[in-house]
Design a protein around this nucleic acid. Structure first.
Length: 196
DNA sequence: CATGGGATTGACT
DNA sequence: GTCAATCCCATGC
């Protein structure tokens, strides 16, 4: 993946990341679910402006923004848009590909549908911790590679973001149509709209 | 300096 | 379905 991939409107990047492959710590998976966050809307950590917590969000595109959620979990984002603009894509679910046994050990669960089906789950499965906040997704140790051929024409659908109270009406969640590895089952067809 | 609230998960009713 | 765990950090007194 090139840096300019991330140096674009965050909604475009969020759609295009579905089908790409995240790898770290001897394991990898295909992204099946993302959400976009932008400083202009109140659900974004960048909404309040530059602070110590969110400074990576304003960094150069292609950085990893890893934050602690509910005091317990780590969540992985890809920083987007030009440097100085607070925007990022939250990686919400993966279809496990490599290192599945490692993922089972790290997660302590067996079912493959349960390994990476949530933002806190996938960081645990891949061994991604807060110390990787600010690392570069183009240099590692976390890497994101482009869509493999089988995913070249994946159908992406948009729906509302999960688990937020502010700006909850925005359809900024993007999922691979029909995937069994989503953090939440597909919504009713009426709630989802095809992208592109 | 005290407090409140999450971009969640898993256990339990 | 409900709810607690647990930790920064941002906010407000």
């Amino acid at each position: 993946m090139r840096r300019r991939f991330y140096d674009r409107p965050v909604l475009e990047v969020a759609e295009d990341l579905v089908g790409c492959v995240v790898s770290h710590g001897g394991s990898s998976g295909v992204i099946v679910e993302t959400e976009a966050y932008h400083h202009s809307e109140p659900a974004s950590h960048a909404y309040v402006g530059l602070t110590q917590r969110n400074r990576v969000l304003f960094g150069r595109p292609g950085l990893a923004y890893v934050y602690r959620s509910y005091g317990i979990h780590a969540c992985l984002n890809a920083v987007c848009e030009p440097e100085g603009v607070g925007a990022a894509v939250l990686i919400r679910a993966l279809e496990p590909v490599e290192g599945v046994e490692l993922m089972r050990q790290r997660r302590g669960v067996e079912r493959s549908e349960n390994l990476c089906s949530g933002p806190g789950k996938l960081t645990e499965a891949l061994g991604i911790g807060l110390e990787l906040n600010g690392s570069d997704l183009l240099e590692g140790p976390i890497l994101i590679a482009g869509r493999r051929s089988a995913w070249r024409n994946v159908e992406v659908v948009a729906s509302r973001r999960i688990g937020i109270t502010k700006a909850a009406e925005l359809p900024w969640r993007f999922s691979a149509l029909g995937s069994r590895f989503l953090s939440r089952p597909a919504l009713s067809r009426a709630e989802e709209s095809p992208v592109r």
